[in-house]
Design a protein around this nucleic acid. Structure first.
Lengths: 242, 242
DNA sequence: GCCAATAATCATCAACTGATGAATTAACAG
DNA sequence: CTGTTAATTCATCAGTTGATGATTATTGGC
């Protein structure tokens, strides 16, 4: 409008085209795109996000998303798998370390705590990127259309590892009770990770969904009690006296 | 295909326009639109559905959706609130009936069972429309952007009613522990309602996420154990011996 | 130095999206 | 009968969407 080039191409507003110089502090566009996508997908789900929004936040052209990930879905899957490997390895190592150290004194609560701690600790650090990622998992886990399949492909290994360890702590448990108990554990964890802030409002500020320290201290005892109730039917049987 | 009008105006493929005749078995378009919307929103969430898809399934023109609900969001809200009143009343009545009948023999498991049964029984009947509705709740409950607010507006009354009843069964419980425990309950219930079929695949068919009878028998005991563990800290305190 | 491969932007597309004013037909009140 | 209101489809719009071929600039191997 008013400001325009006075002499020799002073007011260059044009973004550089072509391959970038390697020396200029390595922009690493691919990671920037993944971060932006993680941020948006975790908040609004797959269909609630446009590739333009992601591109805008990452400050790149939309064509670059397609260059790296082909399709919007390819981008989503890349986001979903990027951190899965890290957290899965941590959880398996944590379970193994606990099982080894506990020996015959293995407890349900110990196993579940070992399973949860890697996640809750990453969440507790306050790293927004991990927060986003966990919320993304929660979204996928509650997507009926394709969530079950995606979750399975990515996390079944770890879950079976967890259940194997739980079997050691609950040698008499039936398979069914173990899986149903895990189902309830998964739900509780998922809602925790989804970060809707619902419990904050419900409790009028008494509980904060971002207070992962409080959650970390309570979740394993809560869930372990449930496991023991369901998977140790011989002890303390005092159900509804019908 | 074979049965068709023999004489006058045989090949009429054009859909009728204008106000429909009242005598022709009352189509009740409004409900049909809500059913179709419920079906789609529950599967793909708000952004994963287009008004055209809903209109097509309901076999009406898209303009009719706007005639009844103004905007896509208005349609979504109407779907969400349609069944809320019914199920909320059932849950409050169920809790009240239990509290009254149990008297001083009130138990945590009894309260939670009374809270869950209305939902699980409706789900167990196999009515697809209620299935869809419950899956929709699960979607909303895991939508960080606006899920917490919508859930609160619709369900906070019932939840506070539940927690009031639980306080009677757990007179020494701190508010915080009660709310955290409810948080885990809510997560477990939500994942159950979301019907992703994940547990089916994980357990290789041993557990069926549509088997609400199995869930109804296990969920209240599981969750009640957790509540008692967290909210009765004086008894059986045997945490990790650090 | 030359040239193929790589990494990025530009310009554009056909399809789709939510929404709306006009037209059409029936119900209903007086 | 007649005019107003309710319920429905028609026709269409302006903006958005995911995607892509062309273009530009830099790297790195020979």
């Amino acid at each position: 409008m008013s400001t325009r080039p006075t002499t020799t191409t002073v007011k260059r507003r044009k973004v550089r085209r072509g391959r970038p110089l390697k020396t200029e502090s390595t922009p690493d566009m691919r990671e920037r795109i993944l971060d932006a996508a993680e941020d948006h997908f975790s908040r609004h789900g797959f269909w609630g996000v446009t590739v333009r929004e992601v591109a805008q936040e990452a400050k790149v052209d939309t064509a670059l998303l397609h260059y790296y990930f082909n399709t919007k879905r390819g981008l989503f899957d890349a986001v979903f798998e990027r951190r899965a490997e890290i957290i899965n390895k941590e959880r398996i190592d944590s379970i193994d370390a606990y099982v080894k150290s506990a020996g015959s004194a293995i407890t349900v609560e110990g196993v579940i705590d070992a399973f949860l701690q890697p996640i809750l600790q990453r969440a507790a650090t306050g790293d927004q990127r991990w927060h986003n990622y966990f919320a993304l998992i929660a979204q996928v886990n509650n997507t009926p259309a394709w969530g079950g399949e995606t979750m399975g492909r990515t996390f079944d290994n770890v879950i079976h590892h967890l259940i194997d360890a739980l079997r050691k702590a609950l040698p008499d448990a039936s398979e069914q009770e173990l899986y149903w108990s895990y189902h309830f554990l998964s739900g509780a964890l998922t809602l925790t990770l989804s970060q809707t802030g619902r419990i904050d409002r419900l409790s009028e500020g008494l509980c904060k969904s971002s207070d992962f320290e409080a959650i970390g201290a309570r979740m394993a005892p809560f869930i372990a009690s449930g496991f023991e109730r369901l998977c140790k039917p011989q002890a303390a049987r005092r159900k509804k006296a019908t």
